[in-house]
Structures are given as structure tokens and as C-alpha cells.
Design a protein around this nucleic acid. Sequence first.
DNA 1: AATGTGACGGAAC
DNA 2: CGTTCCGCCACAT
Length: 115
Amino acid sequence: MNPNSADFYNRVYKVVAQIPEGKVTNYGAIAKYLGVESGARMVGYALNNYLSGKLEFPIPAHRVVNRLGYLTGRAYFDGDTMRERLQQEKIVFIDEYQVDMKLHFWDPQVELSES
DNA sequence: AATGTGACGGAAC
DNA sequence: CGTTCCGCCACAT
């Protein structure tokens, strides 16, 4: 399982698409679930690529934050869209740009059995 | 070919 | 969870 495989991005999108409303996950958790433990940065790269190109159906890219809950990708959304969407889902913030991972962390490794 | 750059994460302090 | 440092790896230059 290498992060440079042709469908790595698509596999990332597939996981992100399953993050429930009101929940968030982080880059490392997705990479780990995909069997590429060192590919956290590549997950971010994949999401960046998603925002640039167009996918068949929309995915909740705003529900992916870093391990501490910081909205590190907010700059890639229009204005304050990332924060607004999360607050719209009643997600609790413990700081201006940091969500409460204790309350909202969704681990694909645990929540997703097979696929 | 070589070097710099991140939507990252973990360890050490 | 501050700062700093380091391993990581696809990409841009």
C-alpha cells in the first residue's frame, strides 16, 4: 500500500465521504486506515487536489482536521467556510479554529469494518 | 539531479 | 499542547 498508487486519492475521498455529520477525523487516521501510516501529508494533498478539481459528488472535506483538532486546511476554503460548516453541524469549538476532538473524533479504523 | 515545500505527526523539552 | 526538531513523501522548481 503506497500513497503514490493511482487510486490513493480516490480511496481518501471514499473514506471522507463516510464521515458522519457532526463528526470529524484527522489526516493520520485516514492514512492509517488506508494502510499508509506515513501518508498523513498525502491525505492533505489529496483533499487539496479535490478542492481544485471536481468530483462526481461532493464530499465533506471540512470534516478533516489535524490530530489536535485545528482547522489547518481552512485557508483552502472560501473565506471562513470550513469553520462555518462545522459550527453549522453543532460541532463544539474549544478555540477560534480548534474543534473538540474528545467529543467529535470519528476513527475510520473503528467505525468502518469492511468495504 | 538537487533542493525546498507542505491540509502531518510524534518525540523531546 | 507552547517550541523545536525530525521522519515522512509527492511535487514544484
